[in-house]
Structure formats: structure tokens, C-alpha cells
Design a protein around this nucleic acid. Structure first.
Lengths: 226, 226
DNA sequence: ACGTGATTTGGCCGGAAGACCAAGAGGCCG
DNA sequence: CGGCCTCTTGGTCTTCCGGCCAAATCACGT
């Protein structure tokens, strides 16, 4: 909840400093474009309209910028999805809205979520655990939504919800690697399309085996496993 | 003067130099672990059991190693999937087998496919186009398989096949970010589970709206678009 | 206006990166 | 044996990175 990880003076929490804001914005854009390691602190500083020394005053190291950016990504994602799902009380519908909000943030929002997802390797050993925990909170948030939707009884009963989350998040997160704003599809359209794929599947109703539910049941207990 | 990879002629097949092999293997492992930019040529050389100068003799620049590795990734992927789908003539079943082969290569094979997918940003401007074309060949390969499966009439008739490919590849490729060999699930199990999700969807058969096919139809023509 | 702490400046430093090469080792064949 | 081509060695050269700092500047309460 508190602000980033400032080492020196007590940064006033709550309202983010506009200079910090500019730094994270510039860093996000550059990290997304070229990756963390290929970006220099000088570039970040220039992108934020300041000199390298000034950046150092805010963040003691480049790693600190990355960590702050990722924490921001988690915070933004949780916030965006939370706000989006408030529009309905139906747990299944909430999944659809949450998916849409997540993808819109990923494609149109700032770059913090993208960096969180695609530059995890760049995290220094020491900071990994903290970010991992934050990220875990976001995943648990989704698991909760999935569990509630599952509780309605409208989904298949035999589902490994963690696998379902990885499946859906994978499909959605991958969009960031190919999405182009001028290609005629909005993130919302893509998200809704993917939602429909997820919910109903790609095989024609007529061409399905008789006992689909049994198929899913079998997936939960692979042959020869516990 | 070695031939590195080069799209046109050159070495026909299989006769890759063992030293080149060791370089690409070491580079792949390091690029996957820390990313391209964070890996030094000295580390690659050491990983391959040679001195930096020797590496330079094979590949004039670090970029060249990346390009060669990515081309290798495409080649391996096409090869693995091609071999896998030969086991059946049913286009729908082929998708399942292809998905499994792709994920097994990504999780258990060498790291070239992973690097191809997750270090695309690191490609130097000049080499991007070539690798993009190779990668496009692999995507077109999948599009062909999808089209044939669609042609059987067993899938929903209203599908944007490119979007379907991005959907499925996204879900599968993302596995590489969380898969751990000792977590109890094999890549084949994961792929087959995802295949079932893809084919039949997650909503219970009983809880579906009456006209699902119409829903898909509507996705192809978003409101307000031509 | 003035002092004080917060912030910015512009440059410096040690080190490591990628690229490169002249000289040598190795092996193959005439 | 001796020439010749392939490949390796061990190091250098230049560039630029991340981190750092002392001094200058600013903002603002009193």
C-alpha cells in the first residue's frame, strides 16, 4: 500500500510525485520496447525530461525502477479489474468484464502490466520474492473470481481452476505480443471474442462426443497418477 | 567463413558443426534464463567451452547468434510438429497432436523456440524482417492446419482463424512462463487439457444459451463495423 | 528577506561490454 | 616433409554503462 521502496527521505505517500510518475512512465515505455537490460538509465532520464543524476535521487538503482514499475503494474491491474467487475454481481459475467479490463490495461493503459508480465527475468535475485508475492496476490484475486463463478454451477464441474486461470491468462496476455491499435480490433472486442471461445469452445455443438463432461472428468486424474 | 544459417542453400541438413551446436545450446540456455541483453558473449563462450575469440570466429556478433538461434527455433518447431501430425490424417486430431508437439518442444526441447517467442524485442532492426518471415512461415503452417480442420465442418462455422490461432498459441506459449518439470504435470498432459478446453469450452453444456452458433456469428461482425 | 531542507545539476569513475586481430596450433594432402 | 587452410588463442581497443557526488538551485515556511 505504501509507496514503492524509497530509501532516503520519507516520500509523501498517497498522491504519487509527478516526477516519479514521469520516470515510471518513461521507463515503462522503454522497457516494453527494448527490454529492461537493453535500456540505459540515461535513456530513462531523458525520456522523463531530467538528468541521470536526478533519476538517481529518486531511485538508487535501475533495479529499483523496475521493481517500482512492477508493483505499480499489480496495483493498476487489481484496481482496473476490481472497478470493472463492480458493474455486475453475476460471477460469470464478472469474469468476462475482468478479462476485458485486464486486456484493455495491457494494450491501452501504461506499460507497467506488460513489463510485469514480460520482463520478470530481469528482476534481481533479491527483489524477486517481493514482486512474486504481489503478483501472487493478483493471481489469487483471479482464482477467487474463478471459484465464485464455478460455484454458480454453470461451468463444468470437473475443472482444475489453476490450470483454467493459466489457460485464460495466457491467451489474453499473449495478445500484447501481436496487438496493433490500427489493425481494426479493439482490445474489448478481442477480449469478448476470447471469452466466447473460452466459454463455449471451438467445436460445433453437433460434432461433440456424447459425454463431454466425462472427458473433463478424466483430465483431472491422468492415467497412472495419484 | 562459416555459413551460420542463411535461408538459402548451404548445408543441406543435419551436418551442423558440433562447435556451432555447442554455441547455440549455451546461448539458448543463457538467453532463456537471463534474456539476450543481459547475457555476455563471454558467458556464451564459456558455456560452450571456448574462448570469446573463438566464438567470434563463428559468429561475428552477438546479434548473429540470436538470429541463428531463432531460425533454428522455427526450423525445429516446424520439424517437430510436422513429424507429430504425420501420425494421423484427421485434420482435427492433427491440431491436438501439433499442439502437444509444440508444447513439448517449448518445455523440454532446447531453448531456441522459447528465445524465438520471448526475446523478439532484442532483435536488431536489420535482422528483424528475416526472422519475422521465418516466424510467419510457422504461423502460416498452423493456419493451414486450422483451415483444414475447419474444412471438416466439425468446428464452428463462424470463426476468425487467425484469432483462433493467436488464442491457442497464446495459451500454449504462456505455459513456458510457469511450467516446472517437477510440478507433477507433463507438457503432454497440459497440452491435452488445453486442447479439451479449446475444443469444448468451460461452460457446462446445460448452462449454454440456445443459440451459441449465433453468438459466434455475431463476433465476426462487431457492432458498427462494415 | 532569509534560512533550510528538498531537489537538480553536470560531470566523474571504475569496470565491463562487444568487437576485433595478429600470431599460433592443428590437421590434411600432395 | 612442407605448404596451406581451418580454427583457436589470449589479449587489446574503444565505448559506454550504472552508480555516485559535491555544488548549485529551488520552494517555502517563518
Amino acid at each position: 500500500m505504501t509507496n514503492t521502496q524509497s530509501s532516503a527521505g520519507g516520500t509523501p505517500e498517497g498522491a504519487a510525485d509527478p516526477s516519479d510518475e514521469r520516470i515510471l512512465l518513461a521507463a515503462g515505455r522503454l522497457f516494453r520496447e527494448k527490454g529492461f537490460a537493453a535500456t540505459t538509465v540515461r535513456e530513462i532520464a531523458q525520456g522523463a525530461g531530467m538528468l541521470p543524476g536526478s533519476l538517481h535521487y529518486r531511485y538508487a538503482s535501475k533495479d529499483d525502477v523496475l521493481v517500482a514499475l512492477m508493483e505499480r503494474g499489480v496495483k493498476r491491474a487489481i484496481s482496473a479489474v476490481t472497478k470493472a467487475i463492480a458493474a455486475t454481481r453475476d460471477p460469470v459475467e464478472r469474469l468476462k468484464l475482468g478479462l476485458r479490463a485486464h486486456l484493455e490495461l495491457l494494450c491501452q493503459g501504461d506499460d507497467s502490466l506488460y513489463v510485469l508480465l514480460y520482463d520478470f527475468r530481469s528482476l534481481p535475485e533479491g527483489a524477486r520474492e517481493g514482486v512474486e508475492r504481489s503478483r501472487g496476490r493478483y493471481e489469487a484475486f483471479w482464482d477467487g473470481m474463478l471459484y465464485e463463478a464455478w460455484g454458480t454451477g454453470r461451468s463444468r464441474s470437473a475443472l482444475d481452476l489453476e490450470l483454467v486461470r493459466q489457460f485464460g491468462m495466457g491467451a489474453i496476455n499473449w495478445v500484447a505480443t501481436w496487438y496493433r491499435p490500427d489493425a481494426g480490433r479493439t482490445p474489448a472486442q478481442i477480449a469478448d471474442t476470447f471469452w466466447t471461445y473460452l466459454a463455449f469452445g471451438l467445436m460445433a455443438e453437433a460434432a461433440r462426443p456424447s459425454d463431454v463432461e466425462g472427458l473433463f472428468q478424466k483430465l483431472l486424474t491422468p492415467p497412472g497418477e495419484k
